[in-house]
Amino acid sequence: MFLFLEEAKFLNKPVSPKARPGTTERQPFGLAQAFDKNGKLTEEKFWVTLLPGYMTEEGEQYAHLPFWMQKAVEQGIFDAVTKPATALKISAGDAIGFLGEDIAPMGRAKTSRSTYAHIEVLSADSRMPAFLDNPGKVTAGRKYIRVHPTAELYTLSGDTFSNTGNTGNPVEKDRHIILPVDKCNPKKSGGKTWYQVGQSYWLSQDDVDLIEQYNLKELGFTALVEETTSDMSASLQEGWMKSGFGRLAEQVRPERGIREQQMSSFYKGMIDKMDTDKDGQLSERELFAALQHPEMGVRDIVARMIVKHQSEWFGGSSHQKWTAFFQNYDALRINFAKKWLDDMEWMSQVEPFASGKAVWHMHPVVFLDALAIDSDGVTYEQLKQIFPQASDADIT
């Protein structure tokens, strides 16, 4: 038995052994990997023909599960939360989730369907804000530079760096820029380190701040705390939302140009609306538009917000926080929505989330990438050094 990894690579092969020499046609091939007698994948990969005349379907076709998922399936428990007797180790490159189909009700008795993987990184540790300040004062790992707003640009000729003579603070518009040192071609000259920030331009070490990898706060990560709420319908009126939009208003670089100024004013307007508009209503369209400006770095700023709030994964539809939310809900959809919440509830069955208290939510890619030293990710020893007060239970 073997697993197809890639299909339909077309190669020129002879039409048949009896065909005239030189006669070829494009034939489909699939990259495959064999299973051993224990059901584990072997390392060797090979190409096989996909022509129907050479292939025979045998048994049920199914997607191959990573080894840790196979172990989970072996427990024989489905549609329920279960804790394995021993920790399941996930190897680099393994899938950590799968595409599931989410169905939502629409008008006229119709539904919308979307397929995606929902992955979250959560923490119940109250020390998260302190963690962002690198309490272990770790200096290992990647380095970054942050450009001063008054920085001066230099050019390089041979081994000599010369000031361009530009006035008016030429990098003022990029004063929030943070760049990885290894991408800036650092050079030593005249007792200083110089960083390349353009095809022909350099900055002196005097005009940048050097930031360590684990000074996450300096790299733009910020901790926001939502007030405990008994009404999920009022979440947009809470203080953490105002803090979040306030940070966006500052970080979209309003000094760069008119579009950035407009967006900064837009976010300030959102704050004003929350302060003065007592119904606190912001439409889905408004919120979506507010966060979809990749060219201004908005999504990057938002991805570095670590927010502590109550989760919809705790309590189900009967929890008091949903009472007001469902009071004026569409009568045709309410049963569907409540069943969805009940089916997705899992936190009450898993420590340390069983208390229902608010938990920290981090971007699963951006946050973990910030911690990783290399492609293998951050190790136990590295985490222990970053946060020396943490116990083994905290880290595992």
Rank of each mutant, 00 (worst) to 15 (best):
P254Y: 06
S204C: 07
Y62R: 14
T82I: 07
L65E: 05
L156S: 09
E351D: 12
V366W: 02
Q389Y: 01
F336R: 10
Y201L: 05
G244N: 05
V359L: 15
G53L: 05
F161T: 04
M296G: 07
E312L: 11
Q70M: 10
R256T: 14
S123W: 00
P186F: 07
A370P: 09
D394Y: 00
T42L: 14
A393S: 03
G39V: 02
R299C: 01
I386M: 08
P186I: 02
K37W: 09
Y214R: 04
S123N: 10
F367P: 04
Q310R: 09
A324W: 05
H176T: 08
I386S: 05
I373R: 13
S126W: 05
F326C: 10
L219R: 14
S317Y: 01
S162F: 03
Q292T: 13
G191C: 15
V197K: 12
D94I: 07
A390C: 03
I103M: 06
L65N: 07
F314D: 03
T82W: 13
S91A: 12
P66R: 05
L248Q: 02
V359F: 02
F325R: 11
N328I: 01
K278I: 03
V252A: 06
H176G: 14
V378S: 01
A85F: 03
M270Y: 00
V181M: 04
E218H: 14
Q27T: 10
Y329H: 07
G269I: 08
A34L: 04
K83I: 05
S318W: 03
D206I: 00
Y54P: 01
T42G: 12
S318D: 10
W313M: 07
T82D: 11
V366Y: 06
Q205H: 07
K89A: 01
A104F: 08
K217I: 03
W322V: 02
E43P: 11
V138N: 00
S391K: 00
Q196N: 11
K217N: 14
A303T: 03
S126A: 15
